[in-house]
């Protein structure tokens, strides 16, 4: 199968990479760029574990061909870290106990981030709708919603602590 050169900006960094046309964006992010926070769950768009932000919109990277990211900007969870500090959403998820097994967390946070970028003060219902494409099989939804809500109400500091040593 013919290979193509794909150019995209991932977490602020310009990337050029050879890819097969039938590779999903998820495969390239995980297997080529080692961004292990992007999870493969159902592979059908039901679970949202693979959610990334593509040009400002949260999408399922498992249902996106890598080639569709040509010339576009992708943000994954690790792209939220600034200067070694975690994002307020990440900090809030930790402090609210919104992480149990953690598998859904990167996708959940990307959906929440896309929401807050457009609407910094969403209602509880708007938060629920925004994460309705993300499944948490530990069923910790209440704490997840509370964690997001705390950030919108400025209850979390602007920048998280340096958790990643």
């Amino acid at each position: 199968m013919k290979k193509y050169t794909l150019h995209m900006v991932v977490n602020g960094e310009e990337i050029s990479i050879e890819t097969k046309p039938n590779a999903t964006l998820l495969e390239v992010l995980r297997d080529e760029l080692n961004l292990m926070e992007v999870k493969e769950g159902c592979g059908q768009g039901d679970c949202g574990a693979c959610a990334v932000i593509l040009d400002g919109k949260a999408v399922n990277s498992c249902l996106t061909l890598a080639m569709q990211a040509e010339g576009r900007e992708i943000t994954t969870l690790s792209g939220l870290n600034k200067n070694g500090k975690i994002h307020p959403l990440q900090k809030s998820f930790v402090s609210h106990g919104a992480i149990q097994c953690g598998f859904c967390t990167p996708g959940m946070i990307m959906s929440a981030k896309a929401l807050l970028d457009k609407n910094p003060h969403p209602t509880r219902d708007e938060i629920k709708i925004a994460i309705s494409g993300n499944l948490c099989r530990c069923t910790g939804y209440k704490k997840i919603i509370e964690a997001i809500e705390a950030v919108t109400k400025g209850k979390e500091e602007k920048e998280g602590e340096n958790v990643r040593a």
Binding site: G48, A51, A58, V59, N60, L63, S111, I129, A130, G133
Partner: peptide, 9 residues
């Protein structure tokens, strides 16, 4: 329609 991630695509 589906969910927000799907609606975005």
């Amino acid at each position: 329609f589906a969910n927000p991630l799907i609606r975005n695509k």
